Simulated scan of single mutants.
Amino acid sequence: MITLSQINQRVVKIPTLSIDRGATAVIGPNGSGKTTLLEVCAGLTTPTQGTVLIDGTPPREMEVAWVSSSPDRNILFSTVRDEVASPCRFAGLSCQETESAVEQVCDRLGIVHLLDRLTRTLSGGEKGVVALATALVKEPTVLILDEFDAYLDHQTLAGITRLIQPSSVRYLLFCTQNMALASAADQVIFLKDGQVLASGRPGAVFNQIRTEGFSPLFFWMEGGRCT
């Protein structure tokens, strides 16, 4: 379980929050603190106050992978093969172990044909999937996606979501404006002004949002997407 206690970081103020294993969607209006919450859970940001523990361990002592909301921010190397292999090489894995891991994750995500491409020639969607492969190649305990779905079409996104679920990832956290995607998660966290106004199973959270009158303010459902 991911546990947050007395968190104070920028707009986010969370006295206590527990996140179970599985897929958790973080939703809310722009400026509500979604990315800040994810950064705290990833260990990218140390909160001004409070603690975060993942199964009793601080995030920076865990294998946590992050995929940015901007495709170009995820890319460091000139070729797809080098990009996906980089976490394994940084960790000191052998050439054989690295190549095997790269082939396996790219085969699972259906991007083996991109391995010899230059990253600068990729489309935004292709860069997104390559970033995901890079994040998954070392089988992280926690995978965090910051509006990763913003530059993927629905069909690609649906296929990738199905592939992530049975992987070794213990916790998948993602923020999204896509309510259809959020409804498929195991847990939903609804933020407003940095505070958790609802957390739990998707149906229960969406019902609470409607009951308390937040829906007209923030969510207009059209084709499964929040606009």
Rank of each mutant, 00 (worst) to 15 (best):
L38K: 08
K127E: 06
M1E: 09
R120L: 06
A65I: 12
E103G: 00
S167A: 00
F148Y: 14
E222W: 00
A180H: 13
V12R: 03
E83G: 03
R21G: 02
M1W: 04
R60Q: 13
F206P: 04
M1H: 07
I209H: 09
L136I: 06
W66L: 12
G110Q: 07
T79E: 03
Q49K: 09
V11A: 01
Q155V: 08
R201K: 14
T134Y: 07
A25C: 13
V105M: 06
P15F: 01
Q6R: 09
S70C: 12
T24I: 13
K138S: 12
T45N: 05
K34D: 11
L53Y: 05
L37P: 01
I2V: 10
E39H: 11
Q6V: 01
N8S: 09
T161K: 14
I19H: 14
A150W: 11
L115S: 11
I2G: 01
I19Y: 13
A133D: 08
A25L: 15
S199L: 08
G28A: 13
G56Y: 10
R10S: 02
Q195H: 09
S123M: 02
T119H: 06
V102P: 10
A185T: 11
C106H: 03
S69F: 04
V11N: 04
G50M: 06
T46Y: 06
Q96P: 03
A42G: 15
L44T: 14
L38E: 12
L217S: 12
E103T: 12
M221E: 14
Q177P: 07
S32W: 07
Q104E: 10
N30H: 03
G213R: 01
F174K: 10
L44D: 15
D186G: 05
I144K: 06
L136P: 09
R108N: 04
L197V: 07
G224T: 05
E99P: 09
V188S: 12
E126T: 13
P140N: 02
D72L: 02
S69D: 07
P47H: 10
N30P: 05
Y151G: 02
I27G: 11
S199I: 13
